[in-house]
């Protein structure tokens, strides 16, 4: 069996194992319920017809994919150790790097599937709501000048079939993959599942503030002391900048994402993943099993 085949086998087994966990289905059901409820929430709001649908759905996708990434990844190594599958696996001609990569890819597949499910529901709701609103608008504004009515309907269609929403999905997936890679790295030296989850939650929080730390580290000048600067530098250097992937709010508000900017952001995400997986590999190589 070649190395990619071994990695693929571990990834598919990981995905199947995770898919059997009830907690992930509960999380997914909660996310789907939240996305579904946004249709009801729209009726409480007197704002733009689709804004709340987009905001709540994309927000739910973002938060639940982060939760899934942490909870799924944190349990991988402890469970394999506890069930002793790790020993039987590594006794075969499977490298530790292959094992880690397979585990990560399994989680990434789970995240992609979960996001695909949430995204499918979101787009279905958006299309159904879009058709209803289009019909309502055409009926209510029948007295309007034809060009004005056509402009309103075109505006509605553009909001519903916004290709930037796909970019939002890609950004959410990459952000959760970065979090999964960082969690996997933590789990190689953490002593328990709970400890890994807590550390990953701290990484998530600090990662969202990393940009501010970097800004002060590089531009704070003489105002901040040497120790503060060192702490800020350590924060900026060690943690990923999760805010760089938080473009979803503006995308939901209708801001277009230039392709080059999207590619650079996704590229940075891939770089984070590679670095955290390599670091995880180095630590895991030393781990006494």
């Amino acid at each position: 069996m070649s190395s990619p085949a071994r990695v693929a086998a571990i990834a598919s087994n990981t995905l199947l194992g995770l898919a059997r966990e009830k907690v992930f289905w509960f999380l997914l059901v909660f996310a789907l319920l939240l996305i579904g409820s946004s249709v009801v929430l729209v009726r409480f709001s007197f704002q733009d017809q689709f804004q709340m649908l987009k905001d709540v759905s994309l927000g739910a996708m973002s938060v639940f994919s982060s939760l899934l990434a942490v909870l799924a990844t944190a349990s991988l190594l402890p469970r394999d150790l506890e069930e002793r599958t790790l020993y039987s696996l590594l006794a075969k001609p499977v490298g530790r790097g292959e094992y880690l990569l397979g585990k990560f890819l399994g989680v990434a597949l789970l995240l992609a599937l979960a996001l695909a499910l949430m995204g499918a529901l979101f787009f279905a709701l958006l299309l159904v709501r879009g058709q209803a609103v289009e019909a309502e608008t055409a009926r209510d504004l029948a007295a309007l000048a034809p060009d004005a009515l056509a402009a309103k309907l075109a505006e509605l269609r553009a909001v519903v079939r916004d290709p930037n929403l796909l970019a939002a999905g890609a950004l959410i997936l990459v952000k959760s993959c970065v979090l999964a890679a960082a969690t996997l790295c933590l789990s190689t030296f953490a002593t328990s599942n709970l400890f890994t989850v807590m550390l990953a939650a701290a990484v998530w929080l600090i990662g969202h503030l990393q940009g501010a730390a970097r800004e002060y580290w590089q531009g704070g000048g003489e105002i901040i002391g040497a120790w503060t600067k060192l702490t800020l530098a350590a924060t900026a250097v060690v943690f990923p900048d999760f805010q760089l992937f938080n473009l979803v709010d503006e995308i939901a508000a209708g801001a277009p994402v230039p392709i080059a900017l999207l590619a650079r952001t996704l590229g940075l995400g891939a770089f984070y993943v590679v670095i955290y997986l390599l670091a995880a590999h180095f630590v895991f190589l030393r781990k006494e099993l």
């Binding site: 970097r214 940075l268 770089f271 390599l278």
Partner: peptide, 23 residues
């Protein structure tokens, strides 16, 4: 592992700053 994270952090810092500015 620590050296890798620090070195990559220092290398990606200007990248992050430029990307933040571009965004």
């Amino acid at each position: 592992a620590i050296a890798l994270v620090i070195a990559s952090g220092l290398a990606r810092s200007p990248w992050e700053r430029d990307l933040d500015a571009a965004q």
